[in-house]
């Protein structure tokens, strides 16, 4: 009876998701396994043989506002490439799923940062520096929820909300979707300006560039894609983007990671970040 229980327990541990899949031997660098089929599925078997780099995270303590209390200690990183795209599988522990925006509520998220140019003189790992920009692919849990089907409506965040009337729902506009959209934009200046912090979107990932703290801006290309899923212990997110220009076996690059836990009030500069790690093509 006891041996049956033990076998059952081991079976549960084996099947407990990627976090408990195996004992992790961390590589010192992020090794990109080439010749693979790119997938957004964090549970695909393609990831099984891919070496894992355990990225040690530290508090962002360079600029105010700082993160004064540490949260996510490490992030598991895997990388594959098909010769055109590079995909990162990123997994970390997070007890809570934070994907509902609101006052004093913050979103789980993760970001991958690469130097914009492969150069021995690398930018500062904290968001780059003037003249030495970095490219960032940023995934957020609330964007994932929207892509996965959450409605663009206040009741999807507050199920008991009963808004009495919106001007764009006025009777004269009801058969004119264009006029409705135009009226709605008048009360959503951020959307009117194309600042898609929330609202309808097709990708849970955003491409950004930066030349130092406070300079984050939309990137010239929207080429990153991604998908995040909850694991039993946190998040597993896959982010894909084109291979960095000039990146090859002979010409390695650098990479850095940042992670935000919404339940820990982490947002913007309040984050757990890494320094640069070598990104090597295998």
């Amino acid at each position: 009876m006891k041996s049956t229980l033990l076998i059952a327990l081991i079976a549960v541990m084996i099947g407990a998701g990627p976090a408990c899949r195996r004992a992790i031997v961390s590589t010192p660098d992020v090794q990109v396994v080439s010749g693979q089929t790119i997938t957004l599925d964090a549970n695909a078997s393609v990831w099984n043989p891919v070496p894992v780099h355990l990225s040690k995270q530290i508090q962002q303590d360079l600029v105010e506002p700082r993160l004064m209390e540490a949260s996510t200690q490490e992030v598991q990183i895997q990388a594959i490439s098909d010769g055109n795209l590079i995909a990162f599988r990123i997994e970390w522990l997070d007890d809570t799923q934070d994907d509902l925006p609101g006052p004093a509520r913050f979103m789980d998220g993760v970001a991958v940062q690469l130097p914009a140019k492969i150069d021995p003189n690398v930018p500062a790992p904290q968001m780059g520096e003037t003249g030495k920009s970095v490219e960032i692919s940023y995934w957020r849990a609330d964007w994932q929820a929207v892509v996965d089907g959450r409605a663009d409506d206040i009741t999807s965040i507050y199920p008991n909300a009963k808004p009495d009337h919106y001007p764009f729902n006025a009777k004269p506009l009801e058969n004119n979707p264009d006029a409705q959209a135009q009226a709605a934009q008048r009360y959503s200046p951020a959307r009117a300006l194309g600042n898609g912090r929330e609202g309808p979107r097709t990708e849970p990932v955003e491409d950004l560039i930066a030349e130092g703290p406070g300079t984050l801006a939309p990137g010239p290309n929207a080429f990153s894609k991604g998908k995040g899923v909850r694991t039993r212990t946190g998040w597993a997110v896959v982010i894909t983007r084109p291979l960095p220009a000039g990146f090859s076996k002979e010409s390695p690059s650098q990479i850095a990671f940042a992670v935000w836990q919404g339940s820990h009030d982490e947002t913007g500069a309040r984050k757990m970040r890494s320094g640069w790690v070598n990104l090597l093509m295998k």
């Binding site: 925006p101 006052p103 004093a104 509520r105 206040i154 600042n195 929330e198 609202g199």
Partner: peptide, 10 residues
């Protein structure tokens, strides 16, 4: 005030 539908503060 934070606007949860635009994701910006107003």
């Amino acid at each position: 005030f934070f606007n949860m539908m635009t994701g910006t503060s107003e």
